[in-house]
Amino acid sequence: MSQPPLLEVEGLSRHFPVRNMFGWQIGALRALDGVSFKVRPGETLGIVGESGCGKSTLGKALAGIHAASGGRILFEGTDITGCSAVQRRSVAPKLQYCYQDPGNSLDPRWTVRRSLAEPLIVHSALTARERDARIAKILEQVGLPLTHLELYPHELSGGQQRRVGLARILTLYPRLVVLDEPTSGLDVSVQASVLKLLRELQAAFTLSYLFISHDLSVVRAMCDRVAVMYAGRIVEEAPTERIFASAKHPYTLSLLAAIPNIGGERITDTFALEGEPPDPVRPPSGCRFRTRCPRAAAVCAGTDPPLRRIAPGQAAACLFA
């Protein structure tokens, strides 16, 4: 707790303009609407939510791919919100963004060695020999033999490509890696090996992860704290164990109730939540979850509940929490 946070996000917003056929702006898609959280060094923060809730926009805003419409992003105490590409260059080595399949972002015409060397050439003053030593070390960490350095991506299997992609992110020794859905669409056995690798790398490089996922069982296995997002807002934030043991926000409870529970009661008998997430261009007034919420009352339409502390380390944005 005494350590200063590695990343601090305050009221971050990202609005995409909605234009009509003449190009006039007629509204805004509020993909992110006042999101605040902190990531401490060495910690894994999970961002959970359904598609369209803004979790990927959040990751991209942090990585500088999307410019923020409002709010601040503090990385190691410095404000990186609106910084230019040149200023960004000093932050980029320490704050890395990892796409869903990092193996896909390898250049098919470059050898593994060249792909791994590129970030070092851009961002560091290492000599060619030092670069080779660093690359060899990283490649060993992700569990690949040195002979793979001269291979092209198509000569590797999908899993090996993924490892090279991760190695490429790690060559600069980042402090925070934003992982955007690193296991979605994978088979369980492959997912298990990816998660294991991510954990080993976290220990070896003392990394912090911002782990964006829609799968709560994966988040439970990986994260220290979890923030649940709904329609551009964080609706609940708590240590992982508290989210699973005593979640307070009705949306979090519905998400938990939707996970298939092998050996337990069937969700096909118990699941009660109806409807779908609201249109982000026209969110409902007041609490955004009220249109689907089993506990919604008249007061929910009028007040937009703020994220408030309800227990040590736990905050929820619900009037009844």
Binding site: E50, H214, A257, A258, I267, T268, F271
Partner: peptide, 11 residues
């Protein structure tokens, strides 16, 4: 599909 929608569709 998302988990909550998946639960609805399975049901």
């Amino acid at each position: 599909l998302d988990v909550t929608i998946q639960a609805q569709i399975l049901k």
